[in-house]
C-alpha cells in the first residue's frame, strides 16, 4: 500500500513556496552563499551542459518516505507530447551527449520508449532512473529486455541490502520486488562484466544522517548482494537526502529538521562544490520549464531571469549558449549537495 503524497494528504508542504519558507526560517550558522564565499570558491555557475535531465512526471507506482518529488500513484502530472518533442529537438540540435530520464517512475510515461529509441538513434547516451519495482508490474515486465536492446544505462534505487531498511524507506515488500527486478536485469546482462550493460545502484540514508563513504559501501553492497542473492552490479552511488518535499516533511514531523540542517551546514566541504551536478546538467520539468537541478525544480526555483525559462525556448544556438553560462540559483537546500563527500546524481563528488 503506497503512502499518500503530500498533495493528496493536503499537507501545507505540498506547496514549494511553503517548503522554501520553512527552510528560509531556519537559523542556520551561515547561508550557502556565505559558505561558498568563505571557502574562496567563486559563486556557483554552470560550466557546460553535458546532461539533459528530463523529469517525465510525478506518476509513480511507489510513494517513498524520502521522495523529493512527492511522486506517487495519485499524481497526474505527465510531460505533454510537445515538451517531449522539444527535448528531442534540443538533443538533435545541440552537443548534449547524455539524456538522463527521471520521474516519478519515468517508464509509466506513454512516450518513454519512443523517447529512448529516438535519443539512442541520435547516438546519445541514455540513462533510466528506475525504481526497480516498476518492472514487476504486468505492463512493464518486458522493460529490462527493452532497455537492454536499446543499451540504456540503468540507475536503480536500493537504499539498503537489508530488507527491513529498504522497506522502511520505500514501502513494505519493496525489497523483495527490487531483488527480483535486479535478478531480471542480471539475466539480460546488466551489471555483468563484459556485457557493456551498465547497472548502477543508488543508496540514500534511511534517516537523518549523511551517507557513509561510497567506496566502502560499494564493497559491502557487492559482497552482500552476491552472497545473499547472487546479484551483480557496476557501481554504487551514495546520495544525500535533500530537505525537500516528503523528506522535509518527515524531518519536521520527527523533530530532526534543525539538527539535520545543522549537520549539512557543519559538513560543508568546499572540495565538493566543483562536482555538483548543476554545473553540467540542465533539468527539464514535466511542463517543459528549465531548472538548474531536479531539487530546484521541486522547490519551484527556475533558472535565473536572463536565461531561457522553457525547453520550448531553446530554439537556437544563442538560447542554448545563455543556458550554458548561467549563474546557478542557490538556497539552503544546496548544503545537501556539498556536505561531506558531496552528492550528485552520480553519487559522491569528492
Amino acid at each position: 500500500m503506497a503512502l499518500p503524497t503530500l498533495l493528496n494528504s493536503r499537507s501545507p508542504l505540498a506547496a514549494p513556496a511553503a517548503q522554501r519558507e520553512l527552510l528560509a526560517a531556519l537559523p542556520l550558522a551561515r547561508s550557502f552563499e556565505e559558505a561558498v564565499a568563505t571557502a574562496q570558491t567563486p559563486p556557483l555557475a554552470a560550466a557546460s551542459v553535458d546532461v539533459l535531465q528530463v523529469n517525465l512526471g510525478k506518476r509513480c507506482n511507489q510513494a517513498c518516505h524520502h521522495c523529493h518529488v512527492d511522486a506517487g500513484p495519485d499524481r497526474r502530472e505527465v510531460m505533454p507530447d510537445a515538451v517531449v518533442d522539444a527535448c528531442l529537438g534540443v538533443l538533435a540540435r545541440s552537443g548534449i551527449q547524455t539524456l538522463d530520464i527521471t520521474g516519478g517512475a519515468p517508464e509509466m510515461h506513454p512516450r518513454f520508449r519512443d523517447l529512448v529509441i529516438k535519443a539512442r538513434r541520435l547516438g546519445r547516451r541514455v540513462i533510466d532512473r528506475c525504481n526497480l519495482t516498476i518492472t514487476t508490474l504486468p505492463n512493464y515486465s518486458d522493460l529490462p529486455r527493452f532497455l537492454a536492446a536499446q543499451r540504456v544505462e540503468v540507475i536503480a534505487s536500493l537504499p539498503s541490502y537489508a530488507a527491513s531498511m529498504t522497506d522502511r524507506q520505500r514501502g513494505a515488500g519493496v525489497f523483495e520486488q527490487s531483488i527480483a527486478a535486479l535478478r531480471e536485469f542480471n539475466t539480460f546482462g546488466y551489471g555483468v562484466e563484459g556485457s557493456g550493460l551498465v547497472l548502477n545502484l543508488v543508496t540514500n540514508p534511511v534517516g537523518a544522517f549523511l551517507p557513509a563513504a561510497q567506496a566502502a559501501l560499494e564493497r559491502d553492497w557487492k559482497r552482500e548482494l552476491q552472497r545473499q542473492h547472487g546479484l551483480v552490479f557496476n557501481q554504487l552511488f551514495t546520495i544525500t537526502n535533500m530537505p525537500i518535499s516528503r523528506y522535509l516533511e518527515w524531518l519536521e514531523h520527527s523533530g530532526n529538521l534543525a539538527a539535520y540542517m545543522d549537520k549539512l551546514v557543519q559538513a560543508f566541504n568546499p572540495a565538493a562544490v566543483p562536482g555538483v551536478m548543476c554545473r553540467n546538467t540542465l533539468s527539464v520539468g514535466w511542463d517543459g520549464r528549465l531548472f538548474d537541478c531536479d531539487f530546484n525544480q521541486m522547490l519551484d526555483l527556475p533558472l535565473v531571469h536572463a536565461a531561457p525559462q522553457s525547453i520550448l525556448d531553446l530554439t537556437d544556438d544563442a538560447a542554448l549558449a545563455r543556458v550554458v553560462t548561467r549563474p546557478i540559483v542557490t538556497g539552503p537546500h544546496c548544503f545537501g549537495c556539498t556536505a561531506g563527500a558531496g552528492s550528485s546524481c552520480g553519487g559522491a563528488t569528492v
Binding site: 540514508p205 544522517f209 551517507p211 557513509a212 563513504a213 566502502a216 559501501l217
Partner: peptide, 12 residues
C-alpha cells in the same frame, strides 16, 4: 549512533 550509520554500519 549517527556516527556508526554514517560509517555504513547496519542497525543489526
Amino acid at each position: 549512533t549517527s556516527g556508526s550509520l554514517e560509517k555504513g554500519a547496519t542497525p543489526a
